[in-house]
Amino acid sequence: MRSILFIVIASLGLVASSAFAQGDATTQKGNEDYQYWCATCHGSGPGHPGTTALAAKYKGALPGLLEERSDLTPAAIRFAVRRGISIMPFFRKTEVSDADLDAITQYLARQRSPGR
């Protein structure tokens, strides 16, 4: 009985760590997609008009750098990517697929996870 319980617990742990690993993999892909598609305008340092625009918009109330934001909702991210804002145009699905967009959303949302 003890061994069966051990196997069950171990299996649950495997499933949990597998899901965790999958989440990490998606976040990692989101990071890569973000760096490729978003960071060229929304990165740090000079010459990033997206970061400059958001810093001017929020005047210190929120970070200009998207990766430092903890308030971004998936819906807001999807809206920005598929509808565009100001100078930023929308992105086609041959550029940012729905799966890419989900990964980017997960990557930007990682800031909201406690302890991460």
Partner: peptide, 8 residues
């Protein structure tokens, strides 16, 4: 950086 033209 060109997209600073007209941007906020």
């Amino acid at each position: 950086s060109i997209f600073s033209i007209g941007a906020r």
